[in-house]
Amino acid sequence: MFNYTFHWHQAFRALPDMMWGALVTIEVAVFSMVLGIAFAVLLAVARLSSNRLAYGAATVWIEVARNTPALFQIYMAHFGLGSFGIHLSPWWALLAGITFNNAGYLAETFRGALRAIPATQTRAARSLGMGPIRAFWSVVLPQMFRISFPPMTNQMVWAILMTSLGLTVGLATDLAGVTQELNVRTFRTFEFFALAAVLYYLIAKAVMLGARLIAWRLFRY
């Protein structure tokens, strides 16, 4: 009944290739996080602004990002935009899709954090002669990042895991893509995917550890 023979050596021989794939995974996740944070700050501010157009656009982005599958978002970036003549390569489509998703989730996190910062902080900054942007940048934003840091860490892990969806738009260079290539060439499905899972797990753990170090270094107060 159970007559599958494990061939781990084949998997381990492919480990360097998979590690290179892991680098692409990390690369996409990091870029999507950096861009996602930048967009999320704008979205959160738009959601708190009285400008109806900004509020409306931000709301649509956040609603779609949070309430539709990430798979759908990445698909749309690749095949959906393709229908309109905008052709993103699998790598760019994956980056765009995950950035879109990250921004939606982080925007809500940031919005909550912004509301937790007393308005008197901005008042104090403004009364020292700072303009609104300077006050936001120097006084509000650093506090917002501290409050949002744990959920941001979760989102980073989530971004790492979401990169595996690149498979669906034909990305062959990230960890999931490389693993799938090896799989179809060898049919050692269990071995390769188990190894890939371990690598994903280790990356996620490394992210958590790195986040803890950053928090320890950054948030001394």
């Binding site: 902080q121 104090a124 009364s127």
Partner: peptide, 30 residues
Amino acid sequence: RQKIGIVFQQFNAFPHLTVLENVTLAPRKV
């Protein structure tokens, strides 16, 4: 506002900055 200082009932210290940084922020950035 640079020539009118104001101090509030709630101290409004910037919690993410040290005492020195709280005081140097506006002179440096403004």
